[in-house]
Computed example of a mutant assay.
Amino acid sequence: MGFLDIKKATKSYGSVRVLHETDISVEEGEFLVLVGPSGCGKSTLLNMIAGLEEVTSGDIAIKGRSMNGVRPADRNIAMVFQSYALYPNMNVAQNMAFGLEMHGIPKPERDKAVAQVADLLQIQPLLDRKPGQLSGGQRQRVAMGRALVRDPDVFLFDEPLSNLDAKLRVDMRTEIKKLHQKLGTTIVYVTHDQIEALTLSTRIAVMFGGHVQQLGTPKEIYDNPANIFVAGFMGSPSMNLFPARVAVENGNAIARIDLADGAAASLPFPPGNAMAAHDGRDIVLGIRPEAITDEDGADRNSKAIHRIETRVEVTEPAGSDTFVVANLGGKEVTGRFRADVDVRPGNTFPFAVNMEKAVAFDPKTEQRIG
């Protein structure tokens, strides 16, 4: 049994089911991120944990106690919203202390809690200011502070960084991660940003269509996606997905692919790879951009680097890297090259492909097969 247990939880509005049977067990101190596109059910699940939405069937329990029918105020959870939800007529200290005041906490204890959290978040100079006098990042810190002073069992974050500009979002991401490492709090965090999910979480639940598509650590989700949706959604740039056909030569599996000029190429899977059982089968081959690179930039520890020469379609300089787009199997494929590689659109160039990092999917079921 986990600290937070979600057991076969569903949510329906009339005849429309927006969240299907969901099972997730969150351990104490874990940072779980619910990630997925708009409408996937992640915010609905978060609201069910908070008590803002009723569970249609199944159960949600915190510390072994079922939350079904328990009012939000009685769940000992704290929520940080996308909109900050600060009271404009109160200063920062009053906003942070308001929840404690509503729970009847004496003023000396409220003041002590606010001072401790303000020190932790480095917002002491802001305590006398009103929300209208704060930047977006400062408001978000205050919203986090209001949650922290309550010392809840579970923190719930609902896309808290989506209103911030790109640089501030990165800075706040780091602050939230440092805060979690320092306090060891249990956090459930909703976002549509897969970079946030990968950098913040101890585990990720990737959601789509009201289902949890995959639950695992960031490394498991990134390296071993369960299906084509997870492969294409997680990562920036996302995993390259293109058609291939499996062949077996001398007992070893090979992925045969078509190149843009009408030629074909063969990419051998590592020796002993289970794909040999799929001889003659059409597959969708998945390879991350960093596993398609220039020859000098390829992983020296890999024993499955294979060269393909094909025409470069587009180059995208990105500072520390250059993204290079080619066509494999009729699909655009992006490789991550070193910044100083002399590669130009229209030229034929050797691509080094690390087949140790390749995964394969069934094109019909879209589930991973190898």
Rank of each mutant, 00 (worst) to 15 (best):
F351T: 03
V114C: 05
Q82N: 02
M355L: 15
P271A: 13
V70F: 11
V333M: 01
V26P: 01
R110Q: 14
P37Y: 00
E290D: 13
G145Q: 03
M1T: 11
M239G: 03
E196M: 07
E313L: 15
F229T: 14
G132D: 10
A205Q: 02
I257E: 12
G210L: 03
D119Q: 15
A247I: 15
V359A: 12
G329A: 06
L259G: 00
R368A: 09
L259H: 08
D119R: 15
R281I: 05
H306L: 06
D128Y: 14
A118S: 10
G58D: 01
V284C: 04
V359M: 13
I187E: 00
R245V: 14
T310E: 07
S201A: 15
G210R: 00
M48Q: 00
G251L: 10
A226K: 15
N347R: 15
T185C: 14
D23T: 01
D111L: 11
E53M: 12
R75S: 07
L183Q: 11
A265E: 08
L259Y: 02
R110K: 09
M355F: 12
E356Q: 14
M48W: 03
P243K: 09
V188R: 04
P345K: 12
V312R: 07
N347A: 15
D362P: 12
G216I: 01
F98I: 03
T191A: 10
V284M: 07
A291T: 06
P243G: 05
M48S: 00
E332H: 13
M96A: 11
T293S: 08
Q181W: 06
I123E: 07
E366A: 12
D299H: 14
M1K: 13
G329R: 02
R256P: 00
P218D: 07
G335T: 06
N273C: 13
S302A: 06
V117R: 12
I49G: 01
A255R: 11
T186V: 06
D158K: 06
V324H: 07
V324K: 08
H192D: 05
R169I: 10
L134S: 03
I228H: 05
P88R: 10
R203F: 10
L86R: 07
S38E: 13
Q122S: 04
